[in-house]
């Protein structure tokens, strides 16, 4: 087993310091050690996107990330999105969530996109979310929701 390291990172805007096995999957660190269960495990191999988080603003799969790779980084999970993120309301209104297991990852992916491109085309949204599998919705309403959230006047924290 690995020797533990002292890991310092910014997690959901808060500085965090913890002693951790650097080869622990970030998904396990979040879910099992830190109780942040909003990131889900759908496949464990970076295919489904249910575990998506923002690493220094970029969407990554936390199942493919090691704790040691978080050193000095800023990590944001679904729990760290602002409570008034327009994506929440847009997803709920559009019917973009059904069983909900892919939804946190989908929202994180959409946030990553909108932070870079505040007004993406539907085609761009399709591409940007293609790493997040949903088996319930056929994606139609998810695309609707992201378009709707993009129309909300900006200026919100994210």
């Amino acid at each position: 087993m690995s020797t533990d390291i002292t890991l310092r990172l910014t997690l959901n805007g808060q500085p965090v310091e913890c002693v951790v096995d650097p080869t622990r999957r970030v998904l396990d660190l979040l879910r099992e050690d830190l109780g942040l269960t909003g990131s889900k495990e759908g496949c464990g191999e970076g295919e489904c996107g249910a575990c998506a988080v923002l690493l220094d603003g970029a969407m990554v799969n936390s199942c493919l990330l090691l704790a040691g790779q978080l050193q000095d980084a800023a990590l944001r999970t679904i729990e760290g999105l602002p409570t008034d993120d327009p994506l929440f309301e847009a997803f709920a209104r559009a019917g973009a969530t059904q069983c909900g297991i892919c939804t946190p990852g989908m929202v994180v992916a959409a946030r990553a996109l909108l932070d870079r491109e505040p007004a993406p085309s539907r085609e761009r949204i399709r591409e940007a979310l293609a790493g997040n599998l949903c088996r319930c919705t056929g994606y139609v309403r998810i695309l609707d929701a992201v378009e709707a959230a993009a129309r909300v006047p900006s200026g919100r924290a994210s």
Partner: peptide, 23 residues
């Protein structure tokens, strides 16, 4: 009528608890 889903608020925020979220 297109009543919003009752479980949407919890699900979109990642607060809905699935079996693997429980310990």
């Amino acid at each position: 009528s297109a009543v919003p889903r009752k479980d949407a608020a919890e699900k979109v925020r990642g607060r809905a608890r699935y079996i693997d979220d429980l310990k």
